[in-house]
Nucleic acid binder design. Structure first.
Length: 300
DNA sequence: AGCGTGTCCTGGATGC
DNA sequence: TGCATCCAGGACACGC
């Protein structure tokens, strides 16, 4: 399940192989892959065939290709199970292959078992702050389809104090705010739990009752845990996720709470608990992340 | 307007 | 053993 560090690993891998190359062939193998793209498969193929890739950019979990002076971008979201495979081995199974591209001398596959991922063409427009929209972008433009996606904790143009203030302005729980991509992007269930553990904050803590220092602490921990995950090559839980060359990440060994229900807390040895949260689950240490007083607890 | 819930999807795990 | 149900997850449409 690719989150920000995994997506960045994919971005860097793609940039290594297809930057300055021309897309010569596009083939779609599943209609859901292009469901959000205006005009569908035909328009996407039309917009990309013959185009030269001049940047591979990323904001949060979204990737996009820039094409020189063109306003059009090819936007990619890997969803839960999406993978990008470059020059896949000849025997690689094809049953989850959703789209394939010939780019320069490379074969590039978009493989996605659960089909939550998608590809789309999006026009772009100038960023409000005049800065590049994300890692790898070399122009101050953002795909219009993701104008509402906030900068992520690894983005050098992200204003963490401003994000902390936005979090505190919400009437919800800190975990919901962290998962809201319009507040801060790139944080999924795994890194939300990890960041909150490191910051010693309960997932259901009401954001409006948090101090600026506490909110900022959570964001800094998110940045830290993602930086470490990135250095380790991305997190992986099963064979669904592999990076562009088909290798799995190995950061999962470093996770402190996520997926560790019943196992001892790395700090205090009390068993980690798993609780249901908004049709999902939260993992926390009942001792390091104590339940706040009712007045400081959000409804969900 | 802002917030919370339901939905999309597949296949491994679990239950009877 | 086999069938049925549950569950995981990100993003967004929708309703309150």
């Amino acid at each position: 399940m690719p989150e920000l560090p995994e997506v960045e690993t994919v971005r860097a891998g793609l940039a290594d192989h297809v930057l300055d190359q021309v897309i010569t062939e596009v083939e779609f193998r599943h209609p859901r892959a292009t469901r959000r793209s205006p005009g569908g498969e035909a328009a996407l193929a039309d917009a990309t065939t013959g185009a030269r890739i001049t940047a591979i950019a990323r904001r949060g979990k979204y990737l996009w290709c820039e094409f020189g002076n063109s306003d059009a971008t090819l936007l990619i979201h890997l969803g839960m199970s999406g993978q990008i495979l470059i020059d896949p081995r000849p025997g690689m199974p094809r049953h989850h292959l959703r789209a394939r591209f010939a780019i320069g001398s490379h074969e590039v596959w978009f493989v996605d078992q659960r089909t939550f991922g998608h590809l789309m063409i999006s026009e772009s427009h100038e960023t409000p702050d005049g800065q590049p929209a994300g890692w790898g972008s070399n122009q101050p433009r953002i795909p219009t389809a993701i104008w509402h996606i906030a900068r992520d904790p690894l983005d050098s143009y992200a204003d963490l104090p401003a994000i902390a203030r936005a979090i505190r302005g919400r009437t919800t729980s800190i975990k919901r705010a962290l998962l809201d991509q319009t507040v801060v992007s790139g944080i999924g269930n795994i890194y939300a739990d990890e960041s909150l553990f490191h910051a010693r904050i309960h997932p259901r803590r009401a954001t409006a009752t948090m101090s600026q220092k506490q909110a900022l602490k959570v964001l800094h921990e998110a940045r830290e845990v993602m930086t470490q995950a990135l250095a380790a090559g991305g997190t992986s839980f099963d064979v669904l996720y592999v990076d562009v060359a088909g290798r799995s990440g190995y950061f999962e060994r470093e996770l402190t709470v996520y997926g560790r229900a019943g196992l001892p807390c790395v700090r205090c040895a009390r068993p980690i608990v798993r609780e249901s949260f908004a049709n999902r689950s939260s993992h926390r240490c009942p001792s390091c992340q104590r339940t706040p007083a009712p007045a400081h607890l959000a409804k969900c």
